Computed example of a mutant assay.
Amino acid sequence: MPKDPDTTPQVGPRHVAIIMDGNGRWAQARGRPRLFGHHAGARRVREVVEACPDLGIKYLTIFAFSTENWKRTQVEVAGLMSLFRRYIIKETRALATKGVRVRFIGDRVRLDAKLIELMDMLEEQTSENDLVHLTIALNYGGRDEVARATKRLAQDVAAGRLNPDDVDEQTLTRYLDTHVLPDPDLVIRTSGEARISNFLLWQSAYSEYEFIDTLWPDFTAAELERLCQSYGARDRRFGAVLT
C-alpha cells in the first residue's frame, strides 16, 4: 500500500513517471511514418531504465498506450501492438539479468491473447528482481482505473467483505492497479504538451511536474539527471508550512 507523503528532504525522486510523447512528430519531422518514431521511442526506454539506479530512481512508470489511443488509425494501433510484443520478446532477458522487475497496469480486456501471454511471462520472469521496478501502463487511463477500482470496492461492500463506514482514501488506493507502488514523486511529459492526459490521476495528487519540449526519442539519461536535480531543489510542503 502506498504510504502517506514523506516530507523528509531527499536528493532526488524515488519514483519517476513519464508520459512518453512526441514519437509521431519526431518521425514526421524526418519524413518517416509515425511507427518509425514509436520504434525509436521504444529503444529510448532501455537507456532511461539503465540510468535509474545511478540516479536513485527505484520506481519508473511509463505511459505506453492509453485507453484513448484506440482512436488512432488501425494501422498505427496494429503497429503499436506488434511493437509491444516485439519489445517484450527482445528485452526480457536483458531486463531479467539487470535486476529490473516489470509490472503492467491497465485494462487487459481489449489486448490480444498473445500479448497478454507475453506480459504475464515478463512479469513472472522478473518477479524476483528489485533493483528497478519498471511499470508499463498499457491500455491505461486514470479515470478507467478509478472506475474499475470503485467497481471492485462496491462488489466487496455488496458481498459483506467491506464495511462502507470503513471506506476512506487508503481503502480505494488498495483497489488501484498501482496498489503495490508508492505514488510518483516526479511526473515528466515530453514533447512540449502541458497536460497530464488521464495519467495516474489519483496517484499524482502531490507529484511534481516537468513539461519539457524534448520529443521522447531525443530524451536522454542526461536530461533525466537534470530533471532529477531540479526536483531535488524544490521545496515540497504537501500543503503544510515548513519552518
Rank of each mutant, 00 (worst) to 15 (best):
P2Q: 10
D4H: 11
H15W: 03
M20S: 10
G22K: 08
G24N: 04
R25K: 11
A27M: 04
A29V: 00
R34K: 12
A42R: 00
R43P: 00
E47L: 05
P53D: 06
D54W: 00
D54M: 11
I57S: 02
K58D: 14
F63V: 10
F65M: 01
T67M: 01
T73E: 07
E76P: 01
A78F: 08
M81C: 09
F84V: 08
Y87A: 14
I89C: 13
T92D: 06
T92W: 01
R93Q: 13
A94E: 11
V100P: 00
V100Q: 02
V102F: 02
R103V: 09
G106M: 02
V109F: 15
E124M: 14
Q125N: 12
S127Q: 12
D130E: 14
D130N: 14
G142T: 05
G142C: 01
E145Q: 10
D156W: 03
A159Q: 11
G160Y: 11
L162V: 05
N163M: 12
D166P: 10
T171L: 07
T173S: 15
R174G: 15
R174S: 15
V180N: 12
I188V: 12
T190L: 02
N198G: 05
Y206V: 09
E208F: 00
E210I: 12
E210M: 13
D213K: 09
L215D: 01
P217Q: 03
D218A: 10
A221Q: 01
E225T: 06
R226N: 12
L227C: 10
L227P: 02
C228P: 06
S230Q: 15
G239M: 07
